[in-house]
Design a binder for these strands. Structure first.
Lengths: 224, 224
DNA sequence: CGCATAGTTCGTTCCTCATCGAAGCATTCT
DNA sequence: AGAATGCTTCGATGAGGAACGAACTATGCG
C-alpha cells in the first residue's frame, strides 16, 4: 500500500547469504569475475550467475566485459555506503564474537572500504585533519578547508584533479562507529598509501597491513 | 565461508515488504502499537506479530509494554541510519516515477492513515492548530493547548471523552515528510469530516475526496 | 577447424517462510 | 465477575525463490 522507494526490494537483494558474500567481496573495491564471486559465495557457477543477474537488475552492480571474462563491481559509493551501514548494524546486534582472531584485529585497524581506507587509522586521520582545519566538517558534510590544497599538494595529491565525484564524503565506520573519509580524496590517499608501499593488501581480505616504516610515515603525515 | 558480521541476516529482515513497511512507519520516530503496524504493513495481526518477533530477535526494534499496548520503536539511530542508506539506494536505482495518476494526486492531498487524516490537508491543519496555539508541540510530542477544549467543543468534539489512547500523537506523512495529527483527537476530526459529509472515502483506497463545500468548511474551521 | 575455458539459460527439485484463522493469554473497563 | 480489547501462539496452507545439472553461447588457443 505504501509508496515511496522500494526498500524491501533492495534489502532482499542483500538479504540472501550468497549475494551478501558477493557484495562483501566486492567491498574490497576490485572488480571480480563471475567465477571468483561464485567461489567467494560458495555456490555453483549457474547459481552465481543467477544472483549476479538479480544484483544487476537491482542496480547494485556494474559489469565490464573483457574478452570472455565479465568483471563485476559495485555500482557506486552509495551502494558501498549502504553495505557499510548494514554491516554496522549487524556488528552491533550480532552475536558477540567469541574470540576475535588476529585477522579481525587487522581489519579493525585498517581495511579497504570500496576505494578508500577504513578502520581505526582512517578514523584517526579524519579527526586529525579536521582538528588541523585542513578539512571542515559540519554534521555529515565534509568540505576542503583553506589550507587543504597546499597541505595535500605537499604529499603529492592534487585535490582538484578528480571532478566527477564529490571530493570529500563521510563514511560511517562499522568497527569504530564514527566516520572516516571517503570521496575522491579518500581514494587518492589510499592510492598513495599502497603506491608508496606504506602498506599492503592482505590476500583475499579487505585488511590493510602497514609495515613499520609505513606506519611511521602515515603517522608523520596524517596524525601530526 | 566469509566471516564477519551477518549482514544477510539483517538485510533479509528488512527485505520483506511487510517488515519494510513497518520499519518505514517507525522512521517517524514515534513508537507504534502492533495493531497500528499491522495496518501500516497491510497484514493481519498474527502476521504482524510474527514479523515483530523477528525484528525484535534481530535487534532492530525495542518494545515498551504499557498496559495492554505494546509500543514498538526502532532500536536506535544506527538502525535508522541503515534504513536511510537503503532508502537512498532504492531511491537512486528505483523505477523512475512513471506518472502519478489522479488517484495518487488525491492520496497526496488527503487520505486515511489508520484512523485519522493524512496528506497535505492534514499537515496544513496541524501546522495551523499549532500556530494558533490550540495545540502545543515540542519535537514529536503534541499536547493540548489552553484553548483546545473550547476550540474543539465549538465544532462538536469533546477532547476528553476518549481516554483510552493518547489524545494527540504526531504521525509522519510520507508524501509530505512532515507530521500530521494522530491520536484520538485526530480520529475524532476524521470522524467529523466523514460524518458531516465534508468528504467521502474512495472505495478500496485510502484516498479521501472532499466535496467543494466540504473543502470550504474544512478550510474555514481548521485553516483559519 | 576442434578443443578448452568463461558464462548464461533452462527445467526441476526442494525448502523456507509469509500468510491467515482459530484459539489462548493478558490487561483494562464496567 | 464478565466483557472487551490488544497481542501472541499454534497449525495448516501456499508461493516464491535458491539450488544444481545439463545444455547452450561466446571467446580464446593451437
Amino acid at each position: 500500500m505504501r509508496e515511496g522507494p522500494d526498500i524491501a526490494r533492495i534489502a532482499s537483494l542483500v538479504g540472501d547469504p550468497a549475494r551478501a558474500n558477493m557484495l562483501n567481496a566486492l567491498m574490497g573495491g576490485t572488480a571480480l569475475t563471475a567465477s571468483e564471486l561464485a567461489h567467494e559465495a560458495g555456490v555453483s557457477l549457474p547459481t552465481a550467475s543467477s544472483h549476479l543477474g538479480k544484483l544487476m537488475e537491482g542496480g547494485l552492480l556494474t559489469v565490464a566485459s573483457q574478452g570472455r571474462h565479465r568483471y563485476y563491481g559495485l555500482a557506486g559509493p552509495q551502494v558501498a555506503g549502504m553495505i557499510e551501514a548494514i554491516t554496522g548494524v549487524a556488528e552491533a546486534v550480532g552475536p558477540k564474537r567469541v574470540r576475535p582472531g588476529p585477522r579481525d584485529g587487522a581489519m579493525r585497524v585498517a581495511r579497504v572500504c570500496y576505494d578508500h581506507l577504513a578502520g581505526e587509522q582512517a578514523v584517526a586521520m579524519l579527526d586529525r585533519l579536521v582538528a588541523k582545519n585542513v578539512l571542515v566538517r559540519d554534521e555529515q558534510q565534509i568540505r576542503l578547508g583553506p589550507s587543504a590544497a597546499s597541505h595535500f599538494a605537499a604529499i603529492g595529491i592534487d585535490v582538484y584533479t578528480r571532478p566527477r565525484r564529490p571530493v570529500c564524503r563521510a563514511c560511517l565506520d562499522w568497527s569504530v562507529r564514527r566516520s572516516h573519509l571517503a570521496g575522491t580524496l579518500g581514494a587518492a590517499i589510499l592510492d598513495k598509501i599502497l603506491a608508496d608501499k606504506w602498506a599492503r593488501r592482505e590476500k583475499d581480505s579487505r585488511a590493510v597491513i602497514f609495515s613499520l616504516p609505513g606506519k611511521q610515515a602515515f603517522e608523520r603525515v596524517f596524525l601530526r
